[in-house]
Nucleic acid binder design. Structure first.
Lengths: 221, 221
DNA sequence: GCAATTGGATAGTAGCACTATCTTTTATCG
DNA sequence: CGATAAAAGATAGTGCTACTATCCAATTGC
């Protein structure tokens, strides 16, 4: 398959394919001449993966590149691979500023919570920081979260994760397993977030719609 | 309070404040002279809200502007306001292409599912489309989701949403309620996503790398 | 009185994800 | 065999977002 056919079957324009090639997101095709190369089914599959990661997962091309590199690195275990994917999915810019006192405290809370749950999680996991940051925000807004609530959320997360992982372990080839894991992470997350918003809207309609507004406070604009 | 003090207490640089003022994200201060204006506590609160929406929620400034406009629009009910927030949180660019057959089918599935659950959700809710898109992706990858699984996810989402909404209804002023709702939507979502990843990593460690005792994962990003 | 600050305006920047154009070489069809 | 289309590779340009930088005249605070 040459580039124009790859473009046609993948729906990605030729210039964009060349761009992906330049950026190393797509491995070069097998050269058949100085200016001719052959692309395979694998290129097509990779393109599909890139599409899922960017469109559904909302990853930047740089993050996609990190995930792809990890997939291609045979020295990594599948578990390490997932860590890389989580890393890529994490907050785009890691601000390396000095954390404030409440952030430090929240991180300690998170660590304590994870230990309490017996969850084995890498100390570098970006989700640790995300969680701490969210907790700080809640606290600053005066809506401090009690451990019972956090535990309820964690129970939910635990059950979902266990179920998903059980599908992946007995999987085919390494690359298929990895892709399935990454895609599952991203896509099931999208499913959960979408359902949560749908549920929220439903409850909001039940609770808030029949009534009129409560305050009528004038905003200083 | 003048602009430099607003900058100092909010941590946002003066040029950026001016930019927000220009873009209408921040209402102008009360002018005290031709080139002097007074900023209030309300400006500080709004800046905090902007920060949460962009940093935690990952919203673009344009989306933040939409949410802010909705907050300031007294003719909207709190429920409608939430709809706007959901809209802003939805996928950035709504591609208005002709949906393929499987996408149309998935949308119908989603509608049927919502009816079956008795969820009252606006037909325009972006989460409908997100969910359908995710379902299509899963289907294309040969990991079709059965209704039992979807129901389990939905149960989870339902419980979480009900719990969050119950906190908001008995709230103070309209603006406080709205901010609490928006922030809750965004921040609790971050909490859930973070916990889900943490749980996933834990299960991944248990299943895929039983020998590592620390979560020992070295990633150079 | 005068340096520092302010509001307002305009222009510039960095990063991202492409998109366009050009050159040289090769394939392919009549 | 030759005309035409397509290929690889390189360089430059585009549109968008979220800021920064610089200027200027008016004003404030010591």
């Amino acid at each position: 398959m040459r580039i124009s056919e790859l473009s046609r079957t993948s729906g990605v324009s030729v210039p964009t394919l060349k761009y992906y090639l330049r950026e190393g997101l797509l491995p070069p095709g097998a050269p058949t001449a100085v200016n001719q190369a052959e692309y395979s089914e694998g290129h097509l599959r990779r393109l599909r993966l890139i599409g899922i990661l960017t469109d559904i997962g909302g990853l930047s091309l740089r993050a996609v590149g990190d995930v792809l590199d990890a997939i291609d690195d045979d020295s990594l275990t599948t578990h390490q691979m997932l860590g890389v994917a989580h890393h890529a999915l994490g907050p785009r810019d890691t601000d390396d500023e000095e954390p404030t006192a409440d952030v430090t405290a929240a991180r300690a809370d998170v660590d304590r919570f994870l230990r309490g749950r017996g969850w084995r999680v890498s100390p570098q996991a970006p989700a640790r920081r995300s969680l701490a940051q969210a907790l700080v925000t809640l606290r600053r807004m005066g809506r401090d979260i009690d451990d019972a609530v956090l535990d309820r959320y964690a129970d939910v997360a635990d059950r979902l994760a266990a179920q998903e992982l059980s599908r992946v372990t007995g999987s085919r080839s390494r690359i298929a397993a990895i892709e399935s894991l990454v895609v599952g992470t991203v896509v099931f997350e999208a499913v959960l977030v979408a359902l949560r918003r749908l549920a929220q809207e439903h409850h909001s309609a039940r609770r808030l719609s029949p009534r009129t507004r409560d305050g009528g406070l004038v905003v200083d604009k």
